[in-house]
Amino acid sequence: MGTRSAKLWQRIMQRGVRRFWAQAAREAHETALPVLRRRRLVARQLRNQLDTLISIADGRLALPIIGSNTFPKPHGTDWAWRPTVWRESLPTKGKVAVQSKEGLGDEVTLFHDCTVSELTLRQLRNTRAKDLAPFGLRMDVFRFDGSFLSLVIDFPPEALAGLNRHYLIRMDTIVEMEKPLEIFARFNIKHGPNTEQIVRELPLHEEDIMVEFDLAYSKLNEKRIERAWVDLIFEGPEMNQVILRDVTFSRRLRAEM
């Protein structure tokens, strides 16, 4: 009985709060300024809490399941990863007029040399039954007066644990475009003062878009590895929309010849 009474009282309080703020909004044009100032402060505090609640709820209720790191992995994989922007609901869903070295989340950064940025980035919900990633990333490019455009994905420290020249790094992605363009993936690994780079063109004409970076062909100093990242380089991106429905990485030991 006590629990039912508490729930009933909670519903009554919620209705009262909604009525109060609805009336406050209707009266805002005529409310005395000192009262309006106090209400604005409280409203901003409530908005921050509500935005947080909505962000968490969107993530948990999105399909596929929030935080999913599920995707096909080659036999022998000892590390696999889906970056946060494709896995978790971000508090900031999008940005317009994105400047160079800006991005979404902690791992994805956009680089370009445009004089005036007409670029947008936005996290999207994936709701198709075939989507394994909870979210996608959409990039809109309007007028583009720069010479390069790349999306940088920083690898977490776990990706580097025990890494050596016997490993293959694999990248899988799902890409949608308004019109055809070329996308190159450049794997970078910093070791001491040097940085090794391996470049592959994404096979956008194939159903499964996958590239591998074979560290055996690098001059990697295994004892001095500091960080690693992948540049997605977009050639001729003007007046195009690119949606990366999923981006995943994995690593495994290469088969010895």
Rank of each mutant, 00 (worst) to 15 (best):
V211C: 08
E206L: 11
K7W: 13
H191R: 09
V247E: 01
W86A: 15
F155Y: 12
G146D: 15
S150E: 09
D246G: 07
G67T: 09
A24S: 04
S68Y: 03
E256P: 01
F142C: 10
P157C: 02
R254P: 00
I169C: 02
S89I: 10
I233V: 12
L124S: 08
V42I: 11
I66H: 07
L168P: 01
R40L: 01
G76P: 05
L160K: 04
G236S: 06
E226S: 11
F213H: 02
A80G: 08
V152D: 03
R128F: 09
L33I: 11
P157I: 01
N194C: 07
I189D: 12
D172T: 11
S150G: 07
Q197Y: 05
D78R: 02
E107L: 10
Q99K: 14
I209H: 00
P157H: 04
E207V: 13
E201M: 02
L220R: 02
R38Y: 03
G236V: 03
V116L: 15
H205R: 14
V17K: 09
A24K: 07
D231F: 05
V141N: 06
V211L: 07
G236W: 02
A97K: 15
A25P: 11
R143Q: 13
E107V: 14
A32V: 04
R186Y: 07
K73Q: 01
P91G: 08
G103S: 14
G103H: 14
E27Q: 12
L204C: 04
R39F: 01
G192L: 03
R138C: 15
L253Y: 03
T173Q: 14
V199E: 11
R254E: 00
I54T: 00
E88K: 06
S218D: 11
Q241V: 14
S117Y: 12
Q10N: 13
R19W: 04
M177C: 05
K130I: 09
R143L: 13
L253Q: 09
E222N: 08
R122D: 15
P72D: 12
L46T: 05
N188Q: 10
E27C: 06
R11Y: 08
P91A: 10
D231V: 01
N69Y: 00
L137G: 04
D113K: 02
Q123F: 02
D113E: 07
R4W: 14
N126C: 13
L121S: 12
M239G: 13
R170S: 05
E182Y: 10
E256L: 06
F144S: 03
T70V: 07
A133P: 00
E118R: 14
N194K: 00
R60W: 10
I153C: 14
P180K: 02
E256Q: 06
F20A: 01
A216M: 05
F187C: 03
A32E: 15
A133C: 06
Q45G: 00
K219C: 12
W79Q: 01
R4F: 15
H191T: 09
A43S: 12
H29W: 04
I198P: 02
V96P: 09
E212H: 00
P237R: 06
L132K: 09
G162D: 04
